[in-house]
Amino acid sequence: MSTVNLPLAERKRLKKKKLTKHHLANILTHWFNAFSWGFLLATGLAILGNRVYQTVPAQWSAFLRNLFGGLAPLIKWHESWGMFWAFVITFNVLVGFRKYFMPFGARRMMLDQDDLEWFKQYGRKLAGLSYQLPEQDDYNAGQKAFSYVVILGIITIIATGLIMTFSPQVMRATGGMQWLIQWAMPIHFTAVGLVVAGLVVHIYMGAIFPEERSAFFSMFSGKVDALYAYSHHHKWYKRYIRAEQEWEAGELAKDIEMGVGTAVSDAELDELAD
């Protein structure tokens, strides 16, 4: 929702008003995830030391191998951190599967009509054409689409990573199906590559693209300014404000019951939310 039509004073007010978008756990998970990706990508690329498969200069391999004291420790670190990372995110998902992940999935991953429109309009935007982005929830369609890549990618990466880490056990359990390990390597590589391709946009959007600057800082503070929310995640913004007001109304009602205030009508609430 464009903010151009809002009065300047209102825009300033919104800019100053902070809405909580991320909880601390979310923030920590994000940065743990970010660090893990950086670490695993850096070590993973260094592990691929063979001239046929290496995608970064050989010096990178040499540097990291020396840093970790050889190829074997480098691989051990990659495997260990990979398993730790896999454990943390799997644990997060499992612990909150019904409480958070299901609603999260329902709201943040189901594409609606607006999302499809968003893709169309965003394409126009990138192409430099006139566009009108539809209202977006707390995760826009691009973020939703990326979440698919990320979730599928992560599942693939974890599965193939485990196959490689536990290759002797896999061999024994499967009676020598070595093709599992042989395929795990390029699939692991490809899955990482696709997620990284998405990450390029994610990082650009999050860290460089000015419109999303508020989102970038939110990954530290947990808060976005209302103006950003108003313009980029209008649906969410509306719901957030409504919830805020409902809470306030609830508090007011309590006050009234205790005889310290007056009731607000539903119409008033709607008005406030807009």
Binding site: G49, N50, R51, V52, A58, S61, A62, R65, N66, G69, G70, L71, A72
Partner: peptide, 15 residues
């Protein structure tokens, strides 16, 4: 095979 010089990687450290 890709022709060219074989890479000589750092030796393993006595593992």
């Amino acid at each position: 095979l890709i022709s060219g010089v074989q890479p000589v990687l750092a030796q393993s450290n006595g593992h």
